[in-house]
Design a binder for these strands. Structure first.
Length: 313
DNA sequence: CGAGTTTGACCGGCGC
DNA sequence: GCGCCGGTCAAACTCG
């Protein structure tokens, strides 16, 4: 990673840049007194330009603050909506499971009867687990159908996660072998995956996922990961009397992740361990996002140039 | 040599 | 109790 490793929750870039001696300054000292009227005019012009730049910087700073606040509000709204969606999905799953139990529909029939989309997904409770009596532990089961080349014998469904195959079996109702996978991206991830070709349509790979990942998807884009899991990252670029500084206030982010604010949104971490690893992941992603953000770069350049101007006055 | 895959053996649930 | 079946284990094997 080319980005710096930031320790602590608050990042502060203090741009204490040593005054740079411009060739112009040398010219001034050498020929002091010889061109007073020209120097005066230049100084007035520079003061005027610097004033304009400082005003522009202040304006940008205000706008940045306003946008940060808007972003925070948007993310809070998003989290609230997401928790509502989760509740609705859970309720739906419960009713679906009951329905399927009564109808005695096998999973294979359901999959074959699904739409002929190249890729589809749905979630349901494990009625198999319910059958075995362990109704307390609800394992999330989802299926995904992927259309592949029928001549391709590999049972690989690309979903961004890292899987380790631990078994293969030919089942009674399907001549195609079923492969068993465990998630190997995180050592304690409980998710399992079964992949089997559809008996009726050999070009259709049916992947059945059991359980939920306790880690982010390794292939998830940085922006999506940030938006889904963290919300806004408050940051500001400012020019003060003591000099310009760019501050990333991650304390708010941390509060949101660990404190009441975050948990009240229904986004509780599953374990402390995963929370710590996720924090590290997010900090890296934030650094990456900021370094790519042209707006952030512009603000930084403006702050540095403002500092130069102040020093040269 | 270590990590991942293959494959036969084994285990537990279920129906008869 | 027995056989069937799906799921898992683990030793052997392969590959980089």
């Amino acid at each position: 990673m080319e980005h710096p490793v930031w320790i602590g929750s608050s990042l502060n870039f203090d741009l204490n840049i040593n005054p740079i001696k411009y060739p112009d300054e040398e010219f001034k000292t050498k020929e002091a007194g010889s061109c007073d009227s020209i120097d005066m005019g230049r100084k007035i012009f520079e003061n005027h330009e610097a004033g304009k730049l400082v005003a522009e910087l202040n304006r940008m700073n205000e706008e940045n603050k306003r946008l940060s606040e808007m972003l925070t509000v948007m993310c809070e709204n998003y989290n609230a909506l997401r928790s509502q969606l989760d509740d609705l999905t859970n309720n739906n799953n419960k009713s679906n499971a009951k329905k399927r139990k009564s109808e005695s529909v096998t999973e294979e029939n359901r999959v074959n009867g699904s739409t002929a989309e190249s890729s589809s997904s749905e979630e349901e409770d494990s009625f198999k687990k319910a059958r075995t009596g362990s109704t307390d532990v609800k394992i999330k089961v989802s299926t995904k159908c992927v259309r592949t080349d029928p001549s391709d014998t590999s049972l690989i469904v690309k979903d961004g996660y890292q899987w380790r195959k631990y078994g293969q079996k030919v089942t009674r109702d399907n001549p195609c072998p079923r492969a068993y996978f465990k998630c190997s991206f995180a050592p304690i991830c409980p998710v399992k995956k079964k992949v089997q070709r559809s008996a009726e349509d050999r070009s259709l790979l049916v992947a059945t996922y059991e359980g939920e990942h306790n880690h982010p998807n390794p292939s998830m884009p940085a922006e999506a990961a940030l938006g889904l899991s963290l919300g806004a990252v408050p940051c500001s670029a400012s020019v003060t009397s003591t000099g310009p500084s760019v501050t990333l206030d991650l304390t708010k982010t941390q509060q949101r992740m660990n404190g009441q604010d975050y948990s009240s949104q229904g986004c509780k971490r599953e374990s402390e361990e995963s929370a710590v690893s996720q924090q590290q992941f997010f900090v890296e992603q934030m650094a990456s996002s900021l370094s790519k953000d042209p707006g952030f770069k512009a603000a930084l350049v403006a702050a540095i140039s403002g500092r130069f101007l102040q020093r040269s006055l």
